[in-house]
Write a protein that binds this DNA or RNA. Structure first.
Length: 279
DNA sequence: CCTTGAACCTGCGGGC
DNA sequence: TGCCCGCAGGTTCAAG
């Protein structure tokens, strides 16, 4: 579910709620998610203070004053919910963190594709989850030259390339379609077929679509959380994602003729595009 | 190396 | 109403 903008918004919300907070207790309600969680996690975390919360790719990094980092990945259905100590624990609340400022954070993940590990800050770059991650799209690492080089001669389709976390991190199924829409490029195009001006548009589109989504999270939620305490998910208008058969927002053409936004399957996942505005 | 497809797991909505 | 199907914002692994 969560892609870079949602994970970023979760991190900002957690940072705000947990400034200078110390973990007083952790309830671990099952031993594994997609992978086993660390042994004795509650004992290891108790008494540690939060020094910072940020992200790498779609991983949340909760930095602790003992020199370790709690890594969390939300998978497809993971959520972080901020509440109070006496809030009732619900179905699929796998981890419940209690803090000395009265705040409780629940990690809820029905499908359990999420991940949790506790790692030494010095060795985090060697962690198997981090070893093969690509560049961050919102840093200076994403340049025209970099993308041109990465696409050159590659025959896979551009949509699948955007989802590949070994190249660029953070883009998921929604923002891959949305970025390609903004760039005017069909998801079915092969990487190597993109012309120089299309690569230029794609770099711009990736940055803009991710930044706009983060901004929407910040502005629509103020402190990044909804009324029920849930972090990172916000009302966001998508141009093409999950809008098969509907009119593209910038199109004036006749839906009855064009059939509206198209849906195709690539690599087992849905892609959406406007055949009029994307070529 | 590449590409494809299945697997992990639960829930939801649509069709019958 | 229930049942069956396909689908869901991610990642990894095996097989060709």
């Amino acid at each position: 579910m969560p892609e870079l903008p949602e994970v970023e918004t979760v991190c900002r919300g957690l940072s705000k709620a947990l400034k200078n907070a110390t973990i007083t207790a952790v309830e671990q309600r099952r031993a594994d998610l997609r992978a086993p969680m660390p042994h004795n996690l509650p004992r290891k975390l108790k008494g540690q203070a939060i020094t910072a919360i940020d992200r790498r790719a779609k991983y949340i990094q909760i930095h602790l004053d003992g020199g370790s980092v709690l890594l969390l990945h939300l998978g497809m259905s993971g959520r972080m919910v901020i509440g109070k100590h006496d809030d009732q624990t619900g179905k699929h609340d796998h981890l419940v963190f209690h803090f000395n400022n009265g705040v409780t954070v629940r990690f809820n993940d029905p499908r359990r594709f999420g991940l949790c590990d506790l790692v030494n800050a010095q060795r985090i770059q060697n962690h198997p989850w981090f070893a093969h991650l690509g560049i961050e799209p919102l840093t200076s690492a994403l340049t025209l030259d970099w993308l041109r080089q990465a696409l050159r001669g590659r025959k896979t389709n551009i949509k699948t390339f955007l989802l590949d976390q070994r190249r660029i991190v953070g883009i998921g199924n929604i923002y891959a379609s949305e970025a390609l829409y903004r760039a005017g490029i069909r998801p079915t195009r092969s990487c190597g077929s993109l012309k120089p001006d299309e690569v230029t548009r794609l770099v711009t589109a990736i940055r803009k679509v991710l930044k706009a989504a983060i901004a929407a999270g910040g502005s629509t939620l103020r402190d990044y959380r909804k009324a029920d305490g849930e972090l990172g998910y916000f009302q966001h208008q998508f141009a093409v994602y999950d809008r098969a058969g509907m009119a593209c927002p910038d199109c004036t053409c006749d839906i009855a003729k064009t059939g509206g936004i198209k849906r195709v399957t690539q690599g087992g996942r849905s892609s959406f595009y406007c055949a009029t505005r994307q070529s």
